[in-house]
């Protein structure tokens, strides 16, 4: 098993955070993981993306270049930029709330998740990223949702533990949406 997933969106959508959660959860399950951020002079408001590799074997390149197995795209520029990086049959998980066009590639396994609406149903638009992660996990089973919740305080600190129930709901809501 080697899962190579790209996560992308606007700065502020919590892209890096869900990448770290996935990587940490993978590590807690004893898998090899890498998390690679984009970095550049644009610090705020630009595009944010990261590449996460979760593997049973030693990981070669932490970069994803035309060999992505999945992509979570939270806005339109991200979809345009990263649909190219997937292998044929790769999973493209699209935030339907902000992307109203279809991908150009026809050889991908595409899912539309209204992440912002689903997050707002939970009373907090900020957890749209977790909805998307939940959908991704349902579709790939890369790690268990429980592992992500265990990773939560490791990534965000013990003082954020009170946010776990909300984030768990968001993950489950995303998973539910992907089942449809």
């Amino acid at each position: 098993m080697e899962e190579k997933v790209i996560m992308a969106g606007f700065g502020g959508q919590g892209i890096m955070a869900i990448g770290k959660l996935l990587a940490y959860a993978g590590m807690l399950e004893g898998k090899n993981v890498t998390w690679m951020p984009s970095y550049g002079p644009e610090m705020r408001g630009g595009t944010a993306n990261c590449a996460v590799v979760v593997s049973e074997d030693e990981i070669g390149s932490p970069l994803i270049s035309k060999d992505g197995t999945a992509a979570i795209v939270m806005n339109l520029p991200s979809m345009i930029k990263f649909e190219k990086e997937l292998v044929p049959g790769g999973k493209l998980i699209i935030n339907k709330s902000l992307i109203d066009v279809e991908p150009t590639r026809k050889d991908l396994d595409v899912y539309y998740i209204p992440a912002n609406e689903l997050a707002l149903e939970l009373g907090n638009g900020k957890v749209a990223n977790m909805v998307m992660l939940g959908s991704y996990l349902e579709l790939t089973k890369t790690v268990e949702i429980e592992s992500v919740l265990k990773a939560f305080v490791k990534v965000f600190g013990e003082d954020k533990a009170d946010l776990i129930p909300l984030n768990k709901e968001a993950l489950l809501k995303g998973a539910q949406a992907a089942k449809k």
Partner: peptide
């Protein structure tokens, strides 16, 4: 290199 500096691993 910059990649080793930027990536996260266990």
């Amino acid at each position: 290199d910059g990649m080793i500096g930027q990536i996260m691993e266990a």
